[in-house]
Simulated scan of single mutants.
Amino acid sequence: MSDQLPFFVYGTLRPGLHNHARYLAGRCTRIRPAVLTGAALHDGPGYPFLLPDPAHRVVGELLTLRAAQYPQLLALLDELEGCRTDGTGLYVRERLPVTVRGTGLAELAWVYLAGPAAAARLRERPALIASGDWTLPHGTTLPG
């Protein structure tokens, strides 16, 4: 299995937002709307976090990066997300199945989840974004 999986992005790395423009614009070969089930979206200090949660889903995009730039972009994204190899960073990167919207097909993708310290804080003081979509006003809910 190749480690060059697409990335599921749900916050500032989404197309049209500042970190996408800074890090990913022009470096993607494919961008598709997608949904991650079994995770809840929580508001953070200017960026969101994901926590595993079977009752929720998160809306975002599935980005396929240019193969020649993949190793460099992976390292850059891990650094941006504070992802450490020992699993103690701000985020942890995991392989998870993500559903491409409109097709019902699931694909494995890299997903950044809240790291241990952020996850513990959010379990104590949840900041759930009910819609599961960080680009919508946070009081919005989406139908089923």
Rank of each mutant, 00 (worst) to 15 (best):
H56P: 03
Y23D: 01
G38L: 10
L65R: 09
V59D: 05
R30A: 15
A39K: 05
G46H: 05
G11M: 07
A39Y: 13
D53G: 01
R30Y: 06
Y47F: 15
P15L: 08
F49M: 02
R22G: 01
P71D: 05
L62G: 10
Y23L: 13
D43L: 14
Y70D: 02
T64R: 12
V35F: 07
D43K: 14
G38Q: 12
G26V: 03
P48G: 05
P52W: 11
E61Y: 06
Y70S: 02
P52N: 02
T29K: 05
D43N: 14
L36R: 06
T29A: 11
F49N: 02
H42D: 02
P54I: 03
A25Y: 01
L41M: 07
Y10C: 03
Y47R: 11
R66W: 04
E61S: 14
G16I: 00
L51I: 01
R27M: 09
E61N: 12
H56I: 02
Y10I: 10
T64S: 15
R57A: 14
C28L: 13
R30L: 14
G26Q: 04
H20W: 08
R30M: 15
P71A: 06
V58E: 06
G60Y: 09
T37C: 06
L63F: 09
A68Y: 04
H56C: 09
L65P: 03
T29C: 11
V59I: 15
G11D: 11
Y10D: 04
R66P: 03
A25D: 10
E61L: 02
V35T: 13
G60C: 08
R14P: 04
A21T: 04
R32M: 14
T29N: 09
A68M: 04
G46W: 13
H18V: 13
H18S: 13
Y70E: 06
L41V: 02
L36D: 01
I31Q: 15
G60S: 07
P71Y: 11
G16V: 00
R57D: 09
H42Y: 13
H42A: 01
G46A: 08
P48T: 01
L62K: 04
C28H: 06
L36W: 12
L63C: 13
L41E: 07
L41T: 01
A21W: 00
H20I: 01
G46L: 10
A67N: 09
H42E: 02
A34E: 13
L50S: 07
T29F: 12
L13H: 07
H42M: 11
G46R: 09
P52M: 04
R66F: 10
L51N: 08
V35H: 15
Y23H: 15
C28Q: 09
N19K: 05
L41P: 02
F49D: 00
A68C: 08
H18L: 13
E61W: 01
Q69E: 15
F49R: 07
A40K: 04
H56K: 11
I31Y: 01
G11Y: 10
R32V: 15
V58Y: 12
Q69I: 02
G38F: 12
G26D: 09
L50K: 00
C28E: 11
T64A: 15
N19T: 04
G60Q: 11
A25E: 14
L13A: 04
G60L: 09
A25I: 00
Y47H: 15
V59N: 11
Y47Q: 06
G46D: 05
T29V: 14
I31A: 15
T64Q: 12
L36V: 00
R27K: 14
Y10Q: 08
C28F: 05
V35A: 12
